[in-house]
């Protein structure tokens, strides 16, 4: 039976409590893999993947050669409302790591989660897509982390992106754990058909690759898995609007696009006037496209990757 362990229990003012839990599947002395989902409450795809993983592992736990820790939802109150931040405090949990045991509840959650994950041989954070976007499945690893990149290439995603950490990275969960892999994909605050299964299959394949799960236990043939392309920062360009209005995308994710080809257009929402045609800055494929149409000047509406 998987162990159900509260990583932290947060006492609420009303007298109620809310827990961040870990489900541990342990069948042998092999490597330990930690899979964390739901750090933001508007990423249900990650929570679904955790659910699928728990369901599968429950049936094979006695045949595992290592340990899998699944944290199905790190931010339960936010997930309850489908919002990114921890309610009341309006805190972005993914800007509070490594956390503070003496801080307010989100900071204590960050500290407890961070501590609980320590020592894992591989940490994977599963998100969905960013709010407002539709994105291809992708794994992010830090440049120079060759083992993480090698593992990410087996995660059944479309793209593995060796991504340089941004200015806020040091306060994120993934940054606390060298070699961590971040999985993204789908549509912001939505479940996207196929994405959850793809990411779950990828995680199972990772477990097999690391020797935690026997290859014979995999519910698919390895040949059916995607073969991602590995890209670096210089291969990816963000595309911004210059005008405000409604952005109407012209293309779907992973479509091929030529340099200068229309990615979408910004229109005046009341007159229909076309304010801007947004061109692709290069030839490649669409990694992400904005689906929430309201935009201001400077809003990112697409990411294009040179393939």
């Amino acid at each position: 039976m998987p162990q159900h362990h509260p990583v932290i229990e947060v006492e609420l003012p009303s007298g109620d409590t809310v827990s961040v839990v870990r489900r541990r599947f342990s069948g042998g002395p092999g490597p330990r893999v930690a899979v964390v989902a739901g750090i933001r409450g508007d990423a249900p795809e990650g929570v679904r993947v955790a659910h699928e993983l728990i369901t599968f592992l429950s049936g094979v736990e006695d045949r595992l050669a290592g340990t899998v820790d699944v944290y199905p939802c790190a931010n339960p109150l936010a997930a309850h409302r489908g919002l990114p931040r921890w309610p009341f405090f309006d805190s972005d949990l993914n800007r509070l790591f490594p956390g503070d045991d003496d801080g307010h509840p989100p900071e204590r959650v960050a500290a407890a989660l961070n501590r609980d994950v320590q020592g894992a041989d591989q940490v994977v954070e599963v998100r969905g897509a960013r709010a407002a976007f539709s994105e291809v499945t992708q794994a992010h690893v830090r440049p120079g982390e060759a083992l993480a990149a090698e593992r990410a290439l087996r995660l059944n995603v479309t793209v593995v992106w060796e991504r340089t950490p941004g200015p806020a990275a040091s306060s994120t969960f993934a940054h606390q754990h060298p070699g961590a892999i971040v999985l993204e994909g789908g549509t912001g605050n939505r479940l996207t058909p196929g994405v959850g299964k793809d990411l779950t299959d990828g995680l199972l394949n990772l477990l097999a690759m690391m020797g935690v799960l026997g290859e014979g236990e995999l519910p698919f043939h390895w040949a059916a898995l995607a073969r991602p392309i590995l890209v670096h920062d210089e291969h990816v360009q963000r595309v911004r609007t210059e005008r405000g209005g409604l952005f109407l995308p012209a293309l779907a994710i992973w479509k091929r696009v030529e340099e200068g080809e229309e990615l979408g257009r910004v229109v005046d929402p009341t007159t229909g006037e076309v304010r801007e045609i947004v061109p692709s800055p290069m030839t490649g494929r669409i990694l992400a496209i904005r689906e929430l149409p309201v935009v201001f000047p400077g809003t990112v509406v697409a990411r294009v990757v040179c393939t």
């Binding site: 005008r243 405000g244 209005g245 409604l246 309201v294 935009v295 201001f296 000047p297």
Partner: peptide
């Protein structure tokens, strides 16, 4: 100033 989608510019 900054153009806004549904109202006068910021």
């Amino acid at each position: 100033s900054l153009e806004a989608p549904y109202r006068r510019a910021y």
